[in-house]
Design a binder for these strands. Sequence first.
DNA 1: GTGGTCTAGACCACA
DNA 2: GTGGTCTAGACCACA
Lengths: 129, 129, 129, 129
Amino acid sequence: MLISLQLDSEIPLYEQLRNQIVIGIATGELAAQEKLPTVRQLAEDLGINTMTVNKAYSLLKQEGYIVIDRRHGAKVSPRIQDSQGPSPQLEEQLQLIIAQATIQGMDQSRFQTLCTQIFSKMTYRPTHI
Amino acid sequence: MLISLQLDSEIPLYEQLRNQIVIGIATGELAAQEKLPTVRQLAEDLGINTMTVNKAYSLLKQEGYIVIDRRHGAKVSPRIQDSQGPSPQLEEQLQLIIAQATIQGMDQSRFQTLCTQIFSKMTYRPTHI
Amino acid sequence: MLISLQLDSEIPLYEQLRNQIVIGIATGELAAQEKLPTVRQLAEDLGINTMTVNKAYSLLKQEGYIVIDRRHGAKVSPRIQDSQGPSPQLEEQLQLIIAQATIQGMDQSRFQTLCTQIFSKMTYRPTHI
Amino acid sequence: MLISLQLDSEIPLYEQLRNQIVIGIATGELAAQEKLPTVRQLAEDLGINTMTVNKAYSLLKQEGYIVIDRRHGAKVSPRIQDSQGPSPQLEEQLQLIIAQATIQGMDQSRFQTLCTQIFSKMTYRPTHI
DNA sequence: GTGGTCTAGACCACA
DNA sequence: GTGGTCTAGACCACA
């Protein structure tokens, strides 16, 4: 999986890293149970500090996207809890995006098409026990 | 229009303010050409520093959402440039949201329903010259 | 409020710090809304790194014990959400403590007396809205 | 006796193991003098390294909960020394738990009820010589 | 002036 | 070999 960081972005490095891994999980580039690179390895590959990678991994762990065990490092969570409805945060973010899209002159039909395109790349399917 | 800021949020105050005004424009709560409160007035109402409001207004101006003139203060832009396609930033943000929604177990149909609900509140229509 | 860290403890410094602040809130040594020392100040006072204090504050914030705003630093949360019942974690920890106490030969009556003593120092009362 | 380890827990495996054995002793699931599984056996059953089980057993031995001899392996101690009063560590841990319970909105009466419930499962009685 | 982020480098516990 | 913790020091965004 390819990760590219923008050093001059407003978004902190650890957050960019977190975002790209979340997308990687959703698209299936990172399969469930797949082992992530070690903190050290990824830091070296990306040319950033281990602490920064550490922070990204800690965040992902806290959010339930990955599990970390001291034996084998970090892995994509086997099963991520599916919530009943949309989280309020997600809804708020989506509202802002749609507001901006609307003002930019994008109508609902074009927006839906865009969503469909993006969805078609998401191969993650929640595992129900 | 009601604006509520979360002082303990991760999102900077000026950005929260900017976001709510953008949403206000999209929903029509703030009509095109409508006059915004003065920096001083809004700062006082919200109990925050004028510099913070100033920063939000500057950002909105730079993004084309509002126009500012010395005589009449800030107003919602009469017409906001409609771009040809989705801005890459918007697409990136949307991809992240959809990734998270997917992992949370939300399928495309539920997502589309949510979008439709949000769109139904957006009354902004771009003015074509 | 007095904070003393054991540099040779198994418990990480940031966690010791977190624990003592939690106890300070419960005993009332730190009142609701009370301002905590700045990250820098506390780090200097304790002779530890700012990052370590930062981590403790972040944890406390995440747990809802304090709020941090960029304007005035960290403050004890005005009102901490009271949950319906005991969290499973708390119950698990308590079970372990009681197991150890039992094996050490402490009977229930002595344990309850000890609890009563400790409770008598806790002046925190949750604010209900 | 059933032991379940959480591989992704913050608590080290050897400590989880130690804790569950302590609880087992207190509840009577592990009787005084009862033979524990061999290090090798338990490691295999739990799917963890023998070193990890070894570390847990060493800790339990050091704390006086079990005795180990080369011929018969590990056994629950026939009699665990009862100390005069609560160990300072236990008191500290209890104080932290009570602080957290208080802030969560749990009052003393509910806490005592919870303690009583937990105590009712503890069947360990120290043997006095 | 405040917390947030990041670095380079180190040591340690866990497994 | 792995992540976790900690330091000294720096720069930056926010207010």
